[in-house]
Design a protein around this nucleic acid. Sequence first.
DNA 1: CCTACCGATCGGTAGG
DNA 2: CCTACCGATCGGTAGG
Lengths: 201, 201
Amino acid sequence: MRATAKKRAAPRRSEGNRRAELLAVCARLFREKGFDGTTIRDISSAAGMHSGSPFYHFKSKQEMLVAVMEEGLAEGLKRSQAVFALKLPPAERFRRLVRIHLGTILEDGNDFIPVLLYEIRSLTPANRRRIIAVKDGYDALWQKMIDELEEAGLLAGDRRVARLFVLGALNWTAQWYRPAGRLSVDRIAEETAAVFLKSVP
Amino acid sequence: MRATAKKRAAPRRSEGNRRAELLAVCARLFREKGFDGTTIRDISSAAGMHSGSPFYHFKSKQEMLVAVMEEGLAEGLKRSQAVFALKLPPAERFRRLVRIHLGTILEDGNDFIPVLLYEIRSLTPANRRRIIAVKDGYDALWQKMIDELEEAGLLAGDRRVARLFVLGALNWTAQWYRPAGRLSVDRIAEETAAVFLKSVP
DNA sequence: CCTACCGATCGGTAGG
DNA sequence: CCTACCGATCGGTAGG
């Protein structure tokens, strides 16, 4: 490397990639510090840009938040639908769906869904309505899963509450899961079936 | 009422009450808008003070957050210990403990524990350690409850995970519960037993 | 995407 | 608890 090399020697990227990079940075920071706790300067410097540059890609900070949530929902819904489409016995399908959901919350770089879960409050009312409308599709898929379990006698209680409890327990893992900890994501998924299902096959 | 009455005709209060009032305002606003999303001016005006006045009661905004969490923990722990001390069969004790916990999260004016649950990130590292040390007492009480249920064959799965799932499901109610909705707090407490316990007596 | 900048707002303080 | 204020920082923009 020459002594006179430029400070930023990163490889050339297409514009689309740069936007995607910026979005990943937003997701990570919004998750770690919250939307209000993250400044444009935090985002710019983490992305290796100057402080005015993110606005070349997004109209406003609010639009960055919306974009993070939309990307998270699109990706999560796609993965969940793929699992739900598999022909499997209810308990097994549940395990697979839980595993996918935990992956989108806990695995490295998956900060998009956690932002959706914990920063909805920071959306403007109009954006909140839009995001919730998409999120309803996610909830509907889970409701079908829960109904199926109840019909198989594997789960009890009010069906809507059961869905909220299962998703609540899973979403809460974002608060306590540590990658270096005792419990792997696979293990947590197995335990979900053990705790919630009435008779584990 | 005289036309020349002063603008602020509120009854005289002791200094202690004024501080308590201010803390309740902080709890409500931190819950609604988040710690970073709440300004000192939001707090002052909601408390009917001028913008510099909250600093007569608290050294900094961070100290307001700590005070909210400490008050929430002290009150919640006191109530939970009282229920846990009752001599009752495991399932019934669980129901009562769940009901108390839901009350401290969902009932009117109980914004202190939700702030603890959702704003831990906003604490400085030193304050976070202090608050978590107190919160550990709360978790230990719940772990005893969960262990008791497992020993009675009413709950299955890894005990620590079971505790985190139950508390996760309950804490998540803060995200979806609406006072005007279909489900009362009592009803949600009953459903908790129905969903989690293996054989409801 | 950078440069140079702006008006608004923020947490906090001195002195009373 | 009020008055008057401050330095720092914030989201965002014009022009290139």
